[in-house]
């Protein structure tokens, strides 16, 4: 345990050094990367050592907690099947094209290139689907074009709302999600609009 922690920490320091020396990443990126790499090892170290000093039987307690992993994962299955099947069918049907036609006059008004509309529509539905669209756009227009930058920003600005709701609620058996989807989608809409706005300011 301690050994692997040391190895992980050394690795991170090396990556740190490489990152600062070579690529010209900004300081912010370097610091955040360092945090990301070290966060899990530090959490594990603190939890286990503190648990030991508090006279907890760490191994037994770990097993006790870990037991529930299986049931949580299995509980999610029906919820995830329901939502992913519906989203998969929706994508395969080509219905997205109609929505794009209907909405494109609106997006032109706010200075959002029509090409990026599919990203905005797909983002809450499917992570892999929207990443596919973003990749395609960047391949066609270049990652450093306005469209490429906007599409990347859109992808990075929210999570896959329907997936999160299905998995999180599914794990505890919540079927009536009340206003969760509405507030999630309102957040997504705000994220997409603000992505257009900030990209015009920063990259425009």
């Amino acid at each position: 345990m301690l050994n692997s922690f040391v190895v992980a920490a050394t690795d991170t320091v090396q990556q740190f050094a490489q990152a600062t020396a070579g690529t010209g990443d900004s300081l912010f990126v370097t610091i955040m990367k360092g945090f990301s790499n070290l966060a899990v090892p530090i959490i594990l170290f603190v939890v286990v050592v503190l648990g030991f000093f508090k006279k907890i039987k760490v191994y037994e307690t770990f097993i006790d907690g870990a037991k529930e992993g299986f049931s949580v994962a299995v509980n999610i299955i029906p919820y995830l099947v329901a939502i992913l099947v519906a989203i998969g069918m929706f994508r395969a049907s080509g219905a997205m094209g109609f929505f794009i036609k209907i909405l494109s006059p609106l997006t032109n008004l706010i200075g959002m290139p029509a090409e990026t509309l599919p990203v905005a529509l797909m983002r809450p539905l499917s992570g892999s689907g929207s990443l596919g669209i973003v990749t395609e756009l960047m391949t066609k227009h270049g990652p450093d074009s306005f469209i490429g930058r906007l599409a990347s920003t859109m992808f990075g600005s929210t999570e896959t709302t329907f997936y999160v709701i299905a998995v999180y609620f599914g794990s505890v058996g919540i079927r009536k999600s009340r206003h969760a989807i509405a507030s999630g989608l309102i957040g997504d809409l705000a994220g997409m609009l603000m992505a257009v706005f900030i990209c015009h300011i920063v990259f425009g």
Partner: peptide
């Protein structure tokens, strides 16, 4: 899931 639930149980009791 099992891994983090195990760790979290220790964190909780600690």
């Amino acid at each position: 899931m099992a891994f983090w639930l195990g760790i979290m149980k220790i964190a909780e009791e600690g």
